[in-house]
Design a binder for these strands. Structure first.
Lengths: 148, 148
DNA sequence: TAAATATACTACTAATTTAGTGGGAATTGA
DNA sequence: TCAATTCCCACTAAATTAGTAGTATATTTA
């Protein structure tokens, strides 16, 4: 399971992507209200996303956050990795949280590892091709279909 | 990530599957040694797997555990579910750990949910078609290829 | 230039989950 | 009877998660 932090990060970045062309920063409090993310927690998440280069910010009374990359370039897999949500089912097949299984004598001969590796590849295939732009387009499509 | 409990359960059940036709139970201590799983933890795991119907046991001096189903019938997805390892990335798409996202006004209109649903389907496709027998056959194949 | 309103940043905390351990009761075979 | 095994309940230490509190710093506007 992904931590809430990751889910909040995706939602916040999607909110920023929606106003990408407005050239005006969005305030933490605005995002917090529309996305229903606890204010202070969101503050900490956005700060981290800034350190990681996803967003930039402006201080002061007209301040707020804005994306520092094009929304088409920000993939779900990037956000998940940056906010500590592991994609792999086991550490022995994780790219970013790799750990050896102490109980495994030869990792390359472990059939369970082979299977969870396949699962990781299948998941990554989807998550690394879905961008913030894709999420927004998908949402529009969902709303359009619901109205029919 | 899957909990260690789940990984241990898969390894223990695979060990039992390997001696399925021996008609003799395997002792906890034997499994614990060959699979390098902490003795007492394994005891608790096997007990739970018995309550869930995966294995049966015999008490006393010639006692031990054995599979109560055919190894071809026990799928990785079953073991993961039984030992509490969620497969889905978010609770809102989990079959066994379902929870609504409080911040989502209309779950059916959430594009993130749609994507993680796809990821779940892709993972489940692999995990629900891989049995203990498959794991053993795969391991043999890995060993055979390594020797070449 | 002072007040108001943003973000920046450090430090702390409460609750939950994970990964076990300890110890004794019940069962079985020799 | 005794030795070896599973059964089962209760407990715990460490890590992780999901935040919160409070203060410092920056920016605009009156």
């Amino acid at each position: 399971m992904l931590p809430k932090k990751t889910k909040y990060a995706i939602k916040a970045l999607t909110a920023l992507a929606k106003v990408y062309y407005d050239k005006k920063p969005l305030r933490i409090s605005q995002i917090s209200e529309t996305e229903k993310i606890p204010r202070k927690f969101l503050e900490a998440i956005l700060l981290e996303l800034r350190h990681q280069g996803f967003v930039a910010s402006k201080m002061g009374v007209t301040g707020g956050y804005y994306l520092s990359k094009h929304p088409e370039e920000i993939m779900l897999s990037h956000i998940i990795r940056a906010t500590g949500g592991p994609i792999a089912l086991l550490p022995c097949v994780s790219l970013n949280f790799y750990e050896t299984c102490e109980e495994c004598p030869h990792e390359e001969l472990c059939s369970l590892r082979e299977v969870v590796l396949e699962v990781r590849e299948a998941s990554l295939k989807i998550l690394s091709k879905t961008s913030l732009t894709d999420l927004i387009l998908r949402e529009k499509k969902l709303i359009r279909n619901a109205k029919k």
